[in-house]
Write a protein that binds this DNA or RNA. Structure first.
Lengths: 359, 359
DNA sequence: CGACGGAATGGTAGCGATAACAGATCGATG
DNA sequence: CATCGATCTGTTATCGCTACCATTCCGTCG
């Protein structure tokens, strides 16, 4: 020992059974199995060449002494963290939860883990989270929805890792995208309502500032209304970004809407939670749905399938979307590990209008 | 260079501005700021002694060259991963999402990050996830609900890190616990219904095998029914563990229940989603709620606050519970970092019966 | 005026794994 | 029987950071 040597946490025997006070390392396994640490390392990776009998012997030793691979060290040495970072606006939302689950399952198939963060619809939080996550050197990033600050984009560019923006497709993508146009979907819903004979179609929810959640849905609504020559301006916005209050905003919103625009005969809501809140408020007040006013949602949340009446909505398989986003990132990661870059891909996935009893 | 030296990813200049092809390291920052790497390390930790002017100079260099601390290396060197692992049965559940959010926020206050996993109510998945997570050397573990296999318990014991079991309190805790007795809460609901005059009270949901989700709620129901001398056996179980089908199970279940036990005048459901499904099915069939049959839930999901009628339920602040669980773990982590162990704590948090229109 | 102490900073080893290549072993082949 | 190639295993250096202690630089004090 020279004077600067770090004192070990506990004494290390040079041979024999490792001290019970210390977690076993690969060197302990190697010693007990009579092989080198490299061979142990290979035994624990599924894709490496090693005699099956050797692997079995090593795995037996691992099991016996309770050895657990330390991926912190592995990540440093191999320069592969094994992480994918994912940012969702909120986890308390079935669509985002499904997206995250799809990504997690796709990543797990390749042995990668997810670092999940919630931005709560705030760019400051998003920046802070990305900064914290980059310190873990994730191998890829998934962003769900939203406009991203220039600082966010710069950080991701500097990190030089694959990025996928999922769900609503942005106009100015960072890299990969996968999702569908919320504006297009909402416009389709408006046209469908028009075909069914509704003539004064309103929009409920979202806030008006650009880049806000719901802005693209609102824009799609407005474009469709104009194209059809229907009366414009039937809009009631929410004051707050989407939160747990979503249903309450829908309940309050429908009342304001009907009072301000008594002729309205159909409402397109920014998402199913608002639609459900609106629907229940109508029932409470004795307003028939869809007789007095039809109600449509967005997202096909479970509540829309079981409410009475069932709610017409825009359906997208968020779980599959998450898996697809994961697949795209994994492809890019594999390429990056072999030193190749991947061109950005832009995938549009289908949505469908689920016509139910509320329209 | 000797023959065994690892080939660097790209050439490393010995001085001057770091090559743009290579991510800057602490050594680059140190060189440019004219200090040692130790001083850079101190500048980036908030709690260390360093001249403020030095810190500012170092931070400026970091900003200029886009240096990002590599916590993979830090974790290895300091033997502190900065991770807390959390396992929830499902993320697509408002209670669990709130729990995870509370834990995340509590951890973030201390600079720790969360590794989140979903067990999907399967012990095999739980074991696999814990194994994968332990390779990251988390500093603590939160488990939400459920019975844990002996192998799970052994792994956590061997890891020798603080563990908190949150939500439903287990009979045989691993370490810390925080939550409340689901059995007690459900029994309280039954008594409340009895006080209101209901006499044939049923239970809907859960599966019957021991350790299944809902088992403790069902046990609490049965105990209360027996204690009150009410007619027993009014139970309809679900065939599947809780999933996205939760509302559909409630809808199907209420029909089966009313057909098999026509005298039932109140139903306690295993959770609000089943209660909601049941309620909507009743409306669809023209069965008045609570006139024909009262319906109560569990968990105070948003849907229960806005449905028509609003659903009576058992309310718990899951976010606060998550924060509390996080606080307990952080205390233990701090102690562990100073070499001290912490005694297991068992915290019971309050629940309340939210009486609404459905009973 | 020299000893002392506290604050700031520096030097070095080591955390535990893996990359890269070298070496050993063994059966097949000419 | 020597050579070759394929397969398996070993050696060494390194990833980027932080713990541990040493050192330097001051101002203070007996």
């Amino acid at each position: 020992m020279t004077k600067h040597e770090r004192k070990p946490a506990s004494p290390r025997p040079k041979g024999g059974i490792p001290s019970p006070k210390r977690a076993p390392t690969m060197a302990d396994v190697a010693r007990l199995a009579g092989v080198s640490t490299m061979t142990v390392s290979r035994a624990l990776k599924s894709d490496s060449v090693i005699l099956e009998s050797t692997r079995q012997r090593i795995l037996a030793v691992c099991e016996e002494i309770g050895y657990i691979l330390d991926e912190r060290a592995g990540a440093l040495s191999s320069n592969q963290s094994g992480f994918i970072s994912a940012l969702v606006p909120s986890i308390n939302n079935a669509n985002f939860a499904d997206l995250a689950r799809g990504l997690t399952d796709a990543a797990a198939d390749s042995g990668l883990q997810i670092l999940l963060g919630y931005t709560e619809y705030s760019s400051e939080k998003e920046e802070a989270l990305i900064g914290a996550m980059l310190r873990r050197r994730p191998e890829a990033f998934m962003l769900v929805t939203g406009h991203h600050s220039e600082r966010t984009r710069a950080m991701l560019r500097a990190a030089a890792i694959p990025v996928v923006e999922a769900w609503d497709t942005p106009e100015d993508p960072i890299h990969h995208t996968v999702g569908f146009s919320f504006a297009h979907a909402t416009a389709t819903m408006v046209r469908r309502l028009h075909e069914k004979g509704y003539r004064e179609i309103a929009f409920l929810g979202g806030t008006s500032y650009p880049g806000s959640p719901g802005a693209s849905r609102r824009a799609g609504y407005e474009a469709a209304i104009r194209a059809l020559g229907l009366p414009e301006g039937r809009i009631v916005s929410f004051r707050q970004p989407p939160t747990a209050l979503a249903m309450g905003q829908g309940a309050a919103g429908i009342v304001e809407l009907i009072e301000r625009f008594p002729g309205v005969d159909a409402v397109v809501c920014v998402h199913d939670l608002a639609a459900f809140g609106a629907l229940m408020e109508c029932r409470r007040r004795g307003w028939d749905v869809p007789g007095r006013c039809a109600i449509a949602g967005f997202g096909d949340f479970e509540v829309s399938r079981y409410s009475a009446p069932r709610i017409t909505t825009i359906q997208v398989d968020a779980y599959a979307l998450g898996r697809m986003a994961g697949g795209m990132l994994l492809d890019s990661i594999r390429s990056a590990r072999q030193g190749r870059a991947t061109a950005a891909r832009h995938v549009t996935i289908p949505f469908s209008i689920e016509e139910r009893e509320s329209t």
